[in-house]
Amino acid sequence: MNGIEVNNITKRFGDTLALNQVSLKFEPNKIYGLLGRNGAGKSTLLNIITNRLFPDEGDIKIEGLASVENDEAQKKVYLMSEKNLYPDSMSCREVFKWSLMFYPNFDLEYAKELAKQFGLDINKKVKTLSTGFSSIFKIVIALSVNTPYVLFDEPVLGLDANHREMFYKLLIKKYSHSPFTAIISTHLIEEVAMILENVMIIKNGDLLINESCETLLKSGYSVSGTAKQIDDFILDKEVISIDALGGLKTATIIGAVDKSTLPLGIEMTGLDLQKFFIKLTNEE
């Protein structure tokens, strides 16, 4: 059985229900977006997949192998976590060296090349890295580790716009060169939407959406025009957001539309994933 299968996972932290009977499947060689607000349960799910936390109920299989306490299964997965688990006193260079010991397919030369591209000084100790460079350091390892499944938990934390763009480009380049399963947990939807194939949205421990990005983007649309035009157009429609600027309005609508029925002067664009996400994950 290929892929990572998550079956009925429940996890509680005291009175807080972090994950509630979550079931999903990550298929090989796809890029997934695991989206959710802060505290939705994204990191908990990734930590359970990688045996860092134990679920209260349910089980996970990685290519048919039980994930709990199983070195064979875990060697197929790498998690770039928000929290740094590498020894603070080690230099980045030493961590690369040890990564090669733990993951025989780790590409040391590629890691050094990536570090150079990002401007990461690999002689620096892990504890001296800023938040941004700490993320870069972990991104470099994640992109060089060459496991079939690479999980990114908030990968662009603290990164400036240039480095964020560089990361997305390198991820796509790597994926195109040798496909693997990338699971990107983030709440920066707008940026990541372009590279995702599948989207999973978690809210308060429940899986709300598990769809291909294409299907999700087809589930709605945005229209813009004068305030009067938009107000008339949206009367009988499911509107999830309205933005107004001067006399112009933009509305995001759920549902299908026949382009030929659009009134003159109204411009239609694709669904804004971020707005859709905000609507879905709002607490009201």
């Binding site: 990688t50 860092r52 306490e69 070195d71 997965v77 688990l85 590498y86 990564s99 733990f102």
Partner: peptide, 16 residues
């Protein structure tokens, strides 16, 4: 602490 964290980061089980 450090060994435990390094193990989990690199897919090593508690048993190993």
């Amino acid at each position: 602490k450090e060994n435990f964290q390094m193990s989990l980061q690199n897919g090593i089980s508690r048993k190993s």
